[in-house]
Design a binder for these strands. Structure first.
Lengths: 257, 257
DNA sequence: CTCATATGTCTCTATAATAGAACCGTAATT
DNA sequence: AATTACGGTTCTATTATAGAGACATATGAG
């Protein structure tokens, strides 16, 4: 059904991440338990096309400038900076915490836009960061509004633990999602990282399918008290309403399977 | 030597550009003169891996969020925004024109950072834009400082014309590059686009090989007079000197074949 | 309604590309 | 001098792919 060679090659690409930005041929081959000849051919082909470059001294490979091009095209397509980012910045200023927009992509949430808090201690994450849907406020908010069968798929697929707070039990997760869906927002502490709190609300496309979430996050010692939480939810929902209005107007062009 | 399947697949990916951001299976197959079965398998495989997404209504494919991730990683690696971008912004403010940084990548120049002019009419281009080395001030500046054999390769490979001003004659180009190399800067009008002027100076790695250029560009009606040009060159070279100092300090990690 | 022409997806098999072991030259380390 | 690592190359049995064709579906025309 799919092309095995291409599939394998893209799998190889995925080993180039923030933690391991450069790989030697044999080094990567060992990591993947594949013959180094194969890895060599894959890396060389990517390099020929500018998707990877090889350091002429160390002979190691890293991501090439071609990705700048494609990344920018995706960014332009989303076109969030003109209207959505200002709303997020206002929110970040009002709440004094970082605000970010997370997009649904398969079984992950992807951070597509960020408005950072002006405070020196703040939650900070890169654009393009990918997180499984069962972890953290931004992702669980999205997951809670997915069709039941897709929730089932995710919990059945096995939920990896990131911190002690990560929910990994299927029934516990489904109950949690049920609650999130009913109240319309999700508040978490320490799920994604042990020192971080998050508060998320969902965003929908024109067919009322969830496509994204808007989230506030900050260090756990600044987390809102139980009395303050409703106010924060209110402010966040007001921001989300504005973004939702924009989405509705320009009926968004990003999908999920 | 290289993997044909992967090579072809990456070639397919290159058809997704700003002008044609979405493709149907048969539409793209026709464009590339390839069987639609092949294109279908390639697109489906990319989609499986999140590199493309398919609009469930139109069934057409477009770039997926995976590229946000990779694009951001390349950007982080270049790490220009902390030190180099401020210098560029100062320059742009002083000269009142857009300033951009172009990186050498194979036989192309790639725009990696931009400081836009505050004027309403300004030269504007996206990050990641790719231009053949023989076109425009930013690229010719780089080409002029390449080893002679690489210049030869490029001129012999045939130089595509973008505007009537584009130099396509090999001897004329080599003479032009010789002049640029001697004076240390390159001034062009109407080569990249008929209504644009550009002024570029080169940047080098620790081995004194050219790796990038710093360029000013604006609408042609604001181009500097012959008397004003030396002053503009001075200001640009001063900015380039600061960036060069930064490069030398943090010996840069991007290469070329 | 019927016909014609699109579309994405799937199946089949001859054929061509790939996998993977073994090898080479080089460079660093012992 | 010997060993061990590295990136890159060669070879051929094996396997995945190319490409034609078919299918279901959608669209538009007459």
């Amino acid at each position: 059904m799919t092309l095995k060679t291409l599939d394998n090659s893209l799998e190889v690409l995925k080993y180039f991440n923030k933690e391991n930005p450069t790989w030697g041929v044999r080094e990567l081959a060992k990591e993947m338990n594949i013959s180094h000849s194969i890895i060599y051919r894959i890396l060389a082909t990517f390099e020929n096309q500018g998707f990877l470059i090889q350091n002429p001294e160390t002979k190691k490979y890293e991501l090439g400038l071609r990705f700048l091009e494609y990344g920018q095209m995706v960014k332009d397509k989303l076109n969030l900076s003109d209207f959505v980012l200002p709303i997020m910045k206002n929110l970040a200023e009002a709440i004094k915490e970082s605000v970010f927009l997370t997009w649904l992509d398969g079984t992950d949430g992807v951070t597509v836009e960020i408005a950072e808090s002006s405070q020196t201690i703040k939650f900070s994450v890169s654009i393009g960061t990918r997180t499984p849907l069962h972890i953290g406020a931004s992702c669980k908010t999205i997951m809670a509004f997915l069709p039941e069968e897709r929730k089932k798929e995710i919990v059945d697929h096995g939920m990896k633990r990131l911190t002690p707070e990560t929910i990994t039990d299927p029934d516990e997760m489904l109950a949690d999602l049920e609650k999130i869906q009913q109240q319309g927002w999700c508040f978490t502490t320490g799920e994604y990282s042990h020192s971080v709190f998050g508060l998320g609300v969902p965003l929908f496309n024109s067919k009322r399918e969830v496509i994204a979430s808007l989230t506030i996050a900050g260090p756990i010692y600044r987390k809102p008290t139980e009395e303050k939480l409703p106010e924060m939810v209110n402010v966040l929902q007001y921001g989300a309403m504005n973004i939702q209005r924009y989405f509705d107007q320009y009926s968004f062009k990003l999908y999920h399977d």
